[in-house]
């Protein structure tokens, strides 16, 4: 006979079962799709009819290396710009902290986090409204009788990376700033008192207390950003893709989509996705190891 305690435990277990089946079905079963890496996938055929091709799809990465290098260059360029942006929310938070009018402070916080809540499609719509040829920016320039380039910024190949990084910054800075503001709120106020008594001015407090106090947060966010080296996300590059900037916006996530839906090479797209996922997990563990070594803390 089971004890009453055990009986309750097993009841919980039974209730948890459907949830676990769900988790397996939606998060683990898709991983079996990686098996298509070794086949020549064709949506019209059943699995038994598919042709086994061994490592051919992996060898293809090597054959297409010039394409892959181009895509990796875009991916790493975007990631590098995003890493450069990482300290900006911290600087913004330190500055906001110096604003003493609470209403203005709350206003800034409310307004700057809004872009975080909209989809990339809406970002595209707003960007179109402002930067397209008939948009606000060029209309304003024309009204001021300033020469307008034939091709606007959204089609400017040379500026494409920087424009996308700018949009990313616009969408995320206000939001990430809040994490730092939470960290500032957590700094011991006695430290400030002590420094003031020692005669520190505003800049002294910022340099010696606020900014060092935010160091750990910056470190964690920087590491997370680094672990996302290969993930730029599909949405942004999907919506801003156009023929004029195509060769610059081909990041890994977009390229995988293109290989899959553009040329219907599903197996090769699966291989690329799989390699990207595995490298991503490896990077995350590496970064976590680095964090444990240097700070003695896990970020996972």
């Amino acid at each position: 006979m089971l004890s009453k305690r055990n009986k309750i435990g097993w009841t919980y277990f039974l209730v948890a079962m459907p949830f676990m089946i769900y988790v397996i079905a939606f998060y683990f079963v898709p991983l079996f799709g990686w098996v298509y890496s070794f086949y020549n996938y064709n949506p019209a055929l059943s699995f038994s009819q598919l042709k086994f091709v061994g490592f051919d799809n992996f060898v293809k990465i090597f054959h297409e290396r010039s394409e892959i290098f181009r895509v990796l260059k875009n991916t790493l360029a975007m990631s590098f710009l995003m890493i450069l942006i990482t300290p900006l929310p911290m600087i913004a938070a330190v500055m906001i902290n110096e604003i003493k009018h609470n209403k203005f402070k709350r206003f800034i916080q409310t307004v700057t986090t809004l872009p975080n809540f909209i989809s990339w499609i809406v970002v595209f719509a707003l960007s179109f409204a402002i930067f397209s040829n008939e948009g606000l920016y060029y209309t304003l320039l024309r009204n001021l009788h300033i020469d307008v380039p034939v091709i606007g910024i959204m089609g400017n190949n040379g500026a494409a990376w920087f424009f996308q990084a700018g949009l990313y910054a616009w969408k995320t800075i206000g939001w990430t700033m809040i994490i730092y503001m939470a960290a500032i709120a957590g700094i011991d106020s006695e430290q400030y008192e002590a420094a003031r008594i020692d005669g520190a001015d505003k800049f002294g407090l910022m340099r010696h207390i606020t900014i060092p106090g935010l160091g750990p947060t910056l470190f964690v966010l920087l590491l997370l950003q680094i672990s996302n080296l290969l993930n730029n996300g599909l949405d942004q590059f999907f919506v801003f893709y156009n023929p004029l900037v195509a060769d610059k916006l081909d990041v890994l996530d977009y390229y995988i989509y293109k290989v899959g839906w553009g040329v219907s090479d599903y197996s090769y797209a699966t291989v690329l996705g799989m390699v990207k996922s595995l490298l991503g997990i490896a990077l995350l563990f590496a970064v976590n190891y680095l964090s444990k070594k240097t700070k003695g803390e896990s970020i996972l």
Partner: peptide, 26 residues
Amino acid sequence: VMPFRKVMYRIVISSMYLNSGLIPWY
């Protein structure tokens, strides 16, 4: 008191880091 609580919890948490990719998901 739930048996296998830790194992099940780990399985659920690991779903956060797994990403099959676009095609297998599709």
